[in-house]
Design a protein around this nucleic acid. Structure first.
Length: 663
RNA sequence: GCCGGAGUAGCUCAGCUGGUAGAGCACCUGUCUUGUAAACAGGAGGUCAGGGGUUCGAGACCCCUCUCCGGCUCCA
């Protein structure tokens, strides 16, 4: 018998029965045999995901295979990072007595391993070099990764004996998760040097392919991500094939830190934080200008799409929050206040206020959909540990809207929200990741209602040709939602926009409209925010643009720089003539050298610097310098004004259509 | 909220094993009148996050609180 394989180039390869991945690599060529780390196996006919396996395992007949080497990109990095996690565990077990190991997977950009240290042992960053050193010894020893499939009972006994409780729990869970028709008989153990771990694999042949690694940080992490369970000590690290790749990665991270919105926000004078109000930004004039530009955009786009702006109170009687359900589900996150013995809650969301507003008068089906927009200020009492610059605050404003419509209008309205979202994001050259979150365990409404709602969201996404991830069970208790995510400079993901279908709030607030049949009907509510919160959005935008905000958002769009005091008068007249409703122009009339004025304008990341001196005054012109030192030469003041307004117009008034970007 | 780390002038940071708090930039004053990324000189600025303790003596050591940073959980 023989094993027939298909290689990536379509060629067939026939090997003896029982041939391994290593045999396959050797059959293709000696160079590949040396470089091979693992083998990817798939059965296109049978379907299913390709699986990366150890080279030492026998190959199945009929498989398509592809040898993984150091050049195989992310898949190969994932492999050695997983290897590195095992080496880390080996080192920690040697250095510290009584450590319990849990899990250690590869992650984006690195790996981690979670440990429980005996009580009294506290690990800090200072301990990392010592651990790295021990790891290095194991890597240099080129210890082999050996896989053994052992009976469940044997593996369990082994870990019980070693007092590795977490491993025992993992085995027990694997057993109970297994199909009763095909019970789990064996689990795989991997041994590298002195260390044996319960692990599915795969691993490279030996530890030596971990060419360069570094332990980055220590953090707490709950066992199984459950805040009711033990907090373990997590050690984060990263690994690459070469030292050069590692240092390139570390440099990239350093560069990313320069984009941090907290740093740039301070440097650019946009906002600041203070101990007197944790989780709340103090907006300086420049930051307020950015803020206002965004609110203006929200208003303009909403106006064009049939939204009406409303204003609702900050503080409501507890009764309203009981009606909305927040008192029961969201109270720990709310600030409450006592007003003459009356318990009141500061609003963490606008929806109850909008629902109440809708209920204060009668509505005909003819006026639906009603679209209320409110850039409303919200307060949420977020746990102290989660506050994070502008990205997670206690005091913020959402570009929030609630649409009240008939069941028949839902689909079209959801679609409208998504189109508006992508028209908005297109203005910022943003790529967002979409998630569809479906019914959670705890929910209100019938299954039929959820079927309908989820189908409507799904169809809207499909009609627009948008790709999305499914996030089952993560919907709001009142309805499914589509969330729009973006990442910050260090790759952390933040939710910006959201579109949520809600059948519950209309019920709770007894909302109704009069239909064509003269009967009262329940409207459907759609919650939607596109920026999410202005705070978070501005934070993400600062990082997205590395502080170099586009012209229309820049707090100061152009600064006039007279070369000496003698031209301050002319400079002032230029600045005055350029300043308008949509233009923000400043004059630097300090008695400073032109070099300094330019340097400071560059540091403030002002898009245009207009140098004026004798020549310019004579010609009624400005010498235009673009951010980053681009000298555009001299332009008559009127020409420059045209250019400025032209750019502003094209940036915000003619957004690219979502279909052009996301077809 | 939980785990770990940190907090010195507006900002970036020195300050050794405890012995009277420093620099650069920014700020103020004066001089300079500047042509595309830093003119020169002088001055002012700190209950060393806050509180308690150890000590003859604490920015340094110990405890508590607050805030921030990195994670976890949670979230726009």
């Amino acid at each position: 018998m023989a094993v027939k394989l298909t290689l990536p180039d379509g060629k067939a390869l026939e090997l003896a029965d029982g041939a391994t991945g290593a045999d396959a690599a050797a059959a293709i060529g000696p160079g590949l045999a040396r470089a091979a780390l693992a083998i990817e196996v798939s059965h296109p006919q049978a379907g299913g995901e390709p699986e990366v396996r150890d080279l030492a395992r026998a190959l199945p007949d009929g498989a398509h295979v592809s040898i993984l080497t150091a050049k195989s990109g992310e898949r190969a990095l994932e492999l050695i990072r997983h290897d590195a996690a095992h080496v880390l565990a080996a080192a920690v077990l040697e250095l510290y007595d009584g450590v319990k190991i849990s899990i250690g997977p590869p992650i984006a950009d690195g790996f981690y391993y979670d440990f429980e240290f005996p009580s009294g042992t506290v690990l800090s960053d200072a301990d990392l070099p010592r651990i790295e050193e021990r790891m290095r010894a194991h890597v240099e020893a080129a210890e082999l990764f050996e896989r053994r499939d052992v009976p469940v009972a044997e593996a369990r006994e082994r870990f019980v004996k070693e007092r590795q409780d977490y491993k025992v729990e993992l085995i027990d869970d694997l057993v109970s998760a297994a199909d009763s028709a095909t019970p789990l008989e064996t689990v795989s153990l991997y041994t590298n040097g002195p260390f044996t771990d319960l692990c599915r694999g795969p691993h490279a042949p030996s530890t030596k392919t971990v060419g360069a690694f570094k332990l980055n940080s220590i953090a707490g992490a709950y066992w199984r991500g459950d805040s009711n369970r033990t907090m373990l000590t997590r050690i984060y690290g990263t690994a690459f094939f070469s030292k050069a790749d590692l240092s390139e990665h570390l440099e990239r991270i350093e560069l990313a830190k320069a984009r941090d919105h907290r740093k740039l926000g301070r440097e650019l004078g946009l906002f600041t934080f203070s101990d007197v109000s944790p989780g709340a930004a103090f907006w300086l004039p420049a930051g307020t200008s950015v803020w206002n530009a965004l609110v203006r955009l929200s208003r303009q786009m909403g106006h064009e799409r049939g939204y009406s702006e409303v204003k609702t109170p900050q503080i409501y009687d507890a009764e309203l929050w009981k009606t909305s359900g927040h008192w029961g589900k969201y109270r720990e996150n709310m600030f409450t206040v006592n007003v003459e013995d009356r318990e009141m809650g500061v609003k963490p969301m606008n929806c109850p206020g909008h629902a109440h507003l809708f209920s204060t008068r009668r509505h005909s089906y003819r006026e639906l959909p009603v679209r209320y927009f409110e850039p409303g200020l919200l307060h949420r009492n977020e746990p102290s540990g989660v506050l994070h610059g502008l990205l997670r605050v206690r005091h913020f404003a959402q570009d929030d809207a609630h649409i009240f419509c008939t069941e028949d209008q839902v689909q079209q309205e959801v679609r409208g929200c998504l189109e508006m979202a992508f028209d908005t994001y297109a203005l910022f050259d943003l790529d967002v990741r979409l998630e569809l979150s479906t019914r959670p365990e705890q929910r209100v409404g019938t299954d039929e209602m959820w079927d309908r709602a989820e189908e409507k969201l799904t169809r809207s996404l499909q009609e627009l040709g948008l790709s999305y991830e499914l996030n089952p069970g993560d919907g709001a208790f009142y309805g499914p939602k589509i969330d729009m995510h973006m990442t910050d400079s260090l790759g952390r993901s933040w939710q910006l926009g959201t579109v949520q279908l809600d059948y519950s709030m209309p019920e709770r607030f007894q909302l109704s409209y009069t239909g064509a049949d003269n009967q009262e009907h329940r409207p459907v509510m759609i919650h939607r925010a596109l920026f999410g919160s202005y705070e978070r959005f501005i934070g993400v935008m600062i990082e997205h643009y590395a502080g170099e905000l586009p012209l229309w958002l820049a707090p100061v769009q152009a600064i006039v720089l007279p070369v000496s005091d003698r031209f301050n008068g002319y400079g002032a007249s230029v600045a005055d003539s350029l300043r308008g409703e949509d233009t923000r122009v400043e004059l630097d009339d300090r008695s400073e050298s032109i070099g300094r004025k330019i340097r400071e304008a560059e540091l403030r990341k002002i898009p245009y610097m207009l140098v004026v001196g004798e020549r310019e005054e004579g010609e009624h012109a400005v010498a235009v310098r673009e951010r980053h030192g681009g000298d555009l030469g001299s332009l008559p003041v009127e020409k420059f004004a045209e250019r400025l307004l032209g750019e502003l117009y094209s940036a915000t008034l003619k957004p690219r259509k979502s279909s052009e970007r996301h077809a």
